[in-house]
Every structure is written in structure tokens, then in C-alpha cells.
Write a protein that binds this DNA or RNA. Structure first.
Length: 312
RNA sequence: GGGUCAGUGCCCGAGUGGCCAAUGGGAUCUGGCUGUAAACCAGACGGCUUAGCCUACGGGGGUUCAAAUCCCUCCUGGCCCA
């Protein structure tokens, strides 16, 4: 893989903290010298616009956005695919002599790029057998993992089927321990990318989240989902898990009353914000800012230094 | 006004004399996870000077060695009759 020629910067934080607006503003001020890369596990799906708070058409005309609308919601997207796309996009941006600003709240996707994680391959056949075996005794699988890769086992919860199966899949499939692919997410390496964190009180965030979701409803979120549902393939396994979409799908596909689903969507968005915050809080390398102004100052500073251009 | 059913911890909701600080779900908090990550998994969840103690099952009173559970009464809500 080609090493990006220009260092990049990342803006992280919980949903509704104002990251996107800030990033856009910063890019505008840099007058085309900075391009944005979305780090959003749901923004990669084409047509899922309202509920993922995607930039508007006008915003996309003003600033270059990357890593959005990569696949159809019927497809299953993964971290490793994201990593590949991100590397390619960043290389192109670097070739153009521009700075790259990552913005988004999907922690793992961010780590994959920022820390250049070595994500082990997939072994579908092995996985299939493991999943079948997990059905009649997860405990046995975990014991096997303890045998084959005690380190990986120690990092996992024995009851987390998805992760236990994955660790075994890789260990058996690649003939080398799952844990040999990396030191674990708790191990934070040196700063390769400056991460600026934008956060605010949950009192404000919670309120904003609800208002925002209700606004999306008014703008036709339900219709957007209905349309995607009717499209060939409909929603795939991963896309349908998106907060907001999942709840409204329950209304459209099942019989759940709309208002109850809306309330639940709001609640789950709030929880998402909290989980995002704790994910980023754990990373000691993130520089936190509680207000947009100082976060912006820091972003501009890093971008200018890194890219050797100075703004007035 | 008469009858009847109900009132449980932040919310919903089990529990009908001791094994009940009280099943379960939700919310909330904390933690973990390198190919589903907006997913997935786990722990905590009345208070405290935490092998124990205190406060709690609408209020008050009573029966009992022992009550969220039985009796009386009051308050509140639903339904039925007037």
C-alpha cells in the first residue's frame, strides 16, 4: 500500500456533537486544499441519507467528500472494505497535494485507518461449521479458543458468540493465532494522526438528538426507508441495523406503532452517542474540545502545519 | 351514593404468610470486542460505616414468632350499578 504523502487529521466524537458541520466549515476555509473522509459505518450505504445525516448536495458541491455511498444497502459492508477504500481515497487526496480530514463516529473504522490495523482475512467455510457448532454449545468453542489462542481468549468474553467464532475462524483458517494480528484495541500506539475530539454535555446532546430525529421524520425519513425497502435486494443484514432505520423498519415490516418506534429510535441514538463517547474517551491520544471554536482552531492549525499552506 | 377490581423499586410488570431488597423486561451506568461495530457481549442497578445494618411493596392501624402477601380503615384510579 502506498503511504499517504500528507499527514491527515481526524475529527471524532459522539453523534450530534456538531462534527460534520465543523468539518465542512474547516474545509471551506481551506479553500479546496482539504478534503473530507467520512468515517461512518452507515454513511457508506447509498440512499440512506436522512437518517445518517449525510451532507447535502450543496455541501458536496462546496467540499469534496469521500467514503460515502459506497455500496447499496442490500450489500454487507465491513471494516476491511472500509479500510481499503479509505487508503485509496487518502492516496488520491495526497496525490492532489491536499490535506485529508477524517470525520466520523465509527470508532473501529477509524482505528482501522488511523492505526493501520492488520485485519485478518475471512474463511467462510470454516465459519459456517463454527456457527453450526456454536448453536449446540458455545462453551466448547471457547474452550477450544483457550487451547489454540489463549491470548485472544483472554481478551474476549466467553459468551460473545460473534467474537469467539471470529477468533476461531481466523486461527483455524490462517493457521496462526488470531491475537498475532494485532495487540488488541486497548493498545494505543504512537500518534500518527492527530485526533480532535468534539464533545458536549449529554443534556444538550440528548435534546439535539431528539429534535434532529423528529426533523428527519418531517423531512420524510419514513418514505426514504420505504423506497429502499422496495428496491431490489432491500436492506441487507448490516444496513438494517442502523439506528433509526432498524426501528422504523419494525414499523414498516411489522405492526409496531409508529410513535413507539420513533421514541425507541431516539433512545437508541442517545445510547449510541454515549457508546461513541466512551470509545473515543478511552483513546488517550484524542485531544478534546468542548466548544466548536477551539476545536476549529486546533484543526486549522494541524492542517496548515501538515500541509504547508497558511491561511490568512 | 352502592358494588367491584386495582395501587410493587426510575418505568412496565411478577410475587398472595417465612427461602423477598423482592423473578422478568425496559431505561440508566460501567466495562469488553481487529471482516455484522449505529452491531455484538458482559457487569452493576434502594441506601449505608456492606460476612452486617437501615429504609422499602399507596397512607395509617391490627393479627402473627414472621406480612408486599391476612384483617380494619383512609386515600387514589379503572369498570359496573344508581
Amino acid at each position: 500500500m502506498t503511504q499517504p504523502s500528507t499527514p491527515s487529521v481526524a475529527l471524532v466524537g459522539p453523534t450530534a456533537s456538531g462534527k460534520s458541520a465543523l468539518a465542512h466549515e474547516v474545509a471551506l476555509e481551506c479553500e479546496g486544499n482539504v478534503e473530507l473522509l467520512s468515517v461512518d459505518a452507515m454513511g457508506v450505504y447509498r440512499g440512506m441519507d436522512l437518517g445518517t445525516a449525510k451532507p447535502s448536495r450543496r455541501e458536496r458541491d462546496e467540499v469534496s467528500y469521500h467514503l460515502l455511498d459506497l455500496v447499496s444497502p442490500s450489500e454487507e459492508f465491513t471494516v476491511s472494505q472500509f479500510q481499503r477504500e479509505a487508503r485509496a481515497a487518502e492516496a488520491r487526496i495526497g496525490d492532489a497535494g491536499h490535506g485529508a480530514l477524517y470525520v466520523g463516529g465509527t470508532g473501529l473504522y477509524g482505528r482501522a485507518v488511523i492505526d493501520d490495523l492488520d485485519i485478518p482475512p475471512r474463511y467462510p467455510e470454516i465459519r459456517r461449521t463454527l456457527e453450526a457448532r456454536a448453536a449446540d454449545g458455545l462453551h466448547r468453542l471457547f474452550d477450544e479458543l483457550v487451547e489454540l489462542d489463549p491470548l485472544a481468549a483472554s481478551r474476549l468474553e466467553a459468551t460473545n458468540e460473534r467474537r469467539v467464532v471470529r477468533a476461531l475462524e481466523v486461527t483455524l483458517g490462517s493457521q496462526r493465532p488470531f491475537s498475532s494480528y494485532g495487540e488488541g484495541l486497548l493498545n494505543y500506539g504512537p500518534v500518527r494522526v492527530v485526533q480532535v475530539g468534539l464533545d458536549s454535555d449529554f443534556a444538550v446532546l440528548d435534546e439535539r438528538i431528539e429534535r434532529r430525529f423528529r426533523a428527519w421524520m418531517d423531512q420524510g425519513l419514513l418514505g426514504e426507508i420505504e423506497g429502499l425497502l422496495r428496491a431490489p435486494g432491500g436492506f441487507g443484514r448490516t444496513a438494517r441495523q442502523a439506528v433509526g432505520y432498524r426501528e422504523l423498519l419494525r414499523h414498516l415490516e411489522g405492526a409496531a406503532p409508529l410513535e413507539a418506534c420513533v421514541t425507541e429510535a431516539v433512545t437508541r441514538s442517545r445510547r449510541l452517542a454515549r457508546r461513541q463517547r466512551s470509545w473515543f474517551r478511552r483513546d488517550p491520544r484524542v485531544e478534546w474540545f468542548a466548544d466548536v471554536t477551539s476545536a476549529k482552531r486546533r484543526l486549522l492549525e494541524v492542517l496548515s502545519v501538515a500541509n504547508g499552506f497558511v491561511r490568512d
